[in-house]
């Protein structure tokens, strides 16, 4: 590919190739301070024109790579950064076999990890990013990587994808940590946030799980927490995993150990401040 960028994020090395300079320049700026891979890359993402002439004419970015979805819609070149991020997520979701992957965000404090998992729009990503600015170490906002041998979570601190109203919560973050505002994407308005430098410096430090939370955001919801039984946690986490079925028995063993050893609660909230309060209270309990 004409333009290339390689980066290490926790235990995973990516190579991103692009037919255009723009997306790679945006990635370099956003991922400033991340290490280059020490060895071979695990996954390759390619940003290519959907058709050869679409490199120049109404440029249209198709997300390709080691693993592809045949019906993935191409994005406008202005959203090339989002295409690169989606491409990296896709490689993980479809190709990662070394860890049990749970769709969720993880943060760490005092050497122990908190997993936030739930449906899209539950606010887990925003909540994790906010905690990452308030004394927690952001380990990742998209995937929890569960070690198949010891059950620890491995950090995967990619840039956070802030969506729509969440953008305003991070206005006071240093500008160099924020990407461009991407309007009109398939997911609405998006802006990427680079985690704090501590999260990047400590991307090799796993943490044992201590608490699992299922956040649910709703304007009319009363702030409340309730415990979730182990069998329900187990089922919800199989649904939150992208590779549980593929891993077979090792995935079952890793998930069963996680569920057996980690208390879980569901939290409802109508504002992020309420959510932060609930998280702190449950963590302290």
């Amino acid at each position: 590919m004409r333009h290339r960028f390689e980066l290490q994020v926790g235990p995973v090395a990516f190579r991103v190739g692009s037919a255009w300079a723009g997306p790679v320049a945006a990635l370099r700026r956003l991922y400033a301070g991340y290490p280059a891979p020490a060895g071979a890359c695990d996954f390759t993402v390619r940003l290519e024109p959907e058709r050869p002439w679409r490199r120049w004419l109404r440029p249209s970015v198709a997300i390709r790579g080691d693993y592809m979805l045949p019906d993935a819609a191409p994005l406008a070149l202005a959203h090339g950064l989002l295409a690169a991020e989606m491409g990296m997520n896709l490689q993980m979701a479809l190709g990662q076999r070394r860890f049990l992957l749970l769709h969720g965000a993880t943060v760490e404090r005092g050497g122990r990890a908190l997993l936030l998992t739930g449906h899209s729009g539950s606010g887990k990503s925003t909540l994790a990013a906010l905690l990452g600015e308030r004394g927690w170490r952001l380990m990742g906002d998209e995937f929890a990587l569960v070690d198949l041998a010891d059950g620890c979570f491995h950090p995967f601190p990619r840039v956070v994808s802030l969506k729509n109203q969440a953008l305003a919560l991070f206005d006071d973050v240093a500008g160099e940590r924020l990407g461009p505002v991407l309007r009109g994407t398939p997911k609405g308005t998006i802006r990427h946030l680079r985690p704090r430098s501590e999260a990047i410096a400590r991307m090799d430090e796993p943490a044992a799980p201590r608490l699992i939370l299922f956040p649910r955001f709703g304007r009319d919801l009363a702030a409340e927490a309730r415990p979730v039984g182990a069998a329900e946690v187990f089922v919800r986490l199989t649904q939150a995993s992208t590779n549980y079925v593929t891993l077979g028995e090792v995935g079952f063993a890793a998930l069963a150990a996680l569920v057996a050893g980690t208390p879980a609660s569901a939290i409802d909230y109508a504002s992020t401040e309420e959510a932060v309060g609930l998280v702190e209270a449950l963590w302290a309990a």
Binding site: T238, Y244, A256
Partner: peptide, 22 residues
Amino acid sequence: VRAVPLEGLTALYHRPSGTTHI
């Protein structure tokens, strides 16, 4: 089969089919 107790219920992995049951 591999069975793990979950607070009164049982998570069971069935090796021949690779399926999980509660």
